[in-house]
């Protein structure tokens, strides 16, 4: 387990280093000087030079890269070009929307997919199975922003159960906050739940076809017990992989849904920062999200080890 852990940790660090270089290089080629962008076309050359020095834009690319990485390691993400406030503070604020939203959506996805997938697998070929598979087929094909628009029409405009957009803020209380995140979370969860249901079903079916399940059944173990005590745990590995991928997708991929509902999350922050050439914000948020994806995948790998001891020795 120790070697496995060290190997994976080293891989994690290398992946992060490469990702940071790629992100930095991508933004190096963005046309437009942020200082000129901030001061407008009529700025005097000396003001421009002073601002460039203040923002740390006058160093060489290599120097700026290491300044940026060094700062991030110390928790100093720099100062936003447009808002003139520390980027770390902005990210933390937005995190309070994006993280709960991602967790909420993931929770919904798992809460729907586990029972639905297990139910369909245990009644393979029945009308119930066909029904579940049909619904998931639709769920995967629905563009989630369109589904969000239709939900807004029904639940916000017609029935007035939920707000049509915006975020109440956690200061208004947990209920108000969750209420403004409910429709976005459902919209995000729908395709994810559909995918997860299918993975759960097919993984469980694979497992149920194994010899040890047949042996257990032959020894008189009930079907229900065979599924719950033997099948499920073994079927969880692919399901865990997908959950991990989904979490990182939900954290970063909510941009469009955040736009539909005018939610002040991380995705919307990047979206706005890109259009105002606030490169330092873009760089930091993207790297943070990539870090989150890599870290989640790492955690999933570790979880495999817990679920399946056979994998501990392998790379």
């Amino acid at each position: 387990m120790g070697r496995f852990l060290i190997r994976r940790l080293l891989g994690l660090i290398v992946a992060l280093a490469v990702a940071s270089v790629v992100i930095f290089l991508c933004l190096e080629v963005v046309p437009g000087d942020p200082a000129a962008y901030m001061l407008g076309v009529n700025a005097r050359p000396d003001t421009l030079a002073a601002l460039r020095a203040e923002l740390g834009l006058d160093g060489s690319a290599v120097q700026r890269y290491f300044d940026w990485i060094g700062g991030m390691l110390r928790g100093d993400f720099g100062i936003s070009y447009t808002y003139r406030t520390p980027v770390s503070g902005m990210i933390v604020d937005r995190m309070w929307v994006s993280l709960p939203l991602a967790l909420y959506a993931l929770g919904l996805s798992v809460a729907i997919a586990f029972p639905a997938g297990i139910w369909a697998a245990s009644r393979r070929g029945s009308a119930a199975d066909l029904g579940v598979m049909g619904v998931t087929q639709l769920g995967v094909a629905v563009p989630n922003f369109w589904f969000a628009m239709l939900m807004v029409l029904l639940f916000a405009i017609k029935l007035r159960w939920f707000p049509s957009g915006g975020f109440a803020g956690w200061d208004e209380g947990l209920f108000a906050g969750l209420k403004s995140l409910t429709l976005p979370a459902i919209a995000l969860a729908l395709p994810q739940a559909s995918i997860l249901t299918r993975v759960m079903r097919s993984s469980l079916l694979d497992t149920l076809g194994e010899d040890y399940i047949r042996t257990a059944r032959a020894k008189g173990v009930s079907r229900r017990r065979a599924i719950w005590a033997h099948g499920l745990r073994n079927a969880l590995i692919p399901v865990l992989t997908i959950i991990g991928l989904q979490f990182s997708f939900l954290l970063a991929g909510a941009i469009i849904i955040e736009n539909v509902f005018y939610l002040p999350g991380l995705g919307r922050l990047v979206f706005q920062a890109i259009s105002s050439r606030d490169l330092i914000v873009v760089e930091s948020v993207v790297l943070l999200l990539v870090f989150a994806v890599i870290a989640v995948n790492f955690a999933v790998d570790m979880a495999y080890g817990l679920v399946d001891p056979r994998l501990r020795g392998r790379r």
Partner: peptide
């Protein structure tokens, strides 16, 4: 394979937005 892992680590939609924005 490592390049693949790297591309998979980038949230696809975010990068698509980054590319179109650049």
């Amino acid at each position: 394979m490592r390049g693949n892992d790297l591309i998979f680590a980038f949230p696809s939609l975010l990068i698509a937005i980054l590319i179109t924005a650049i």
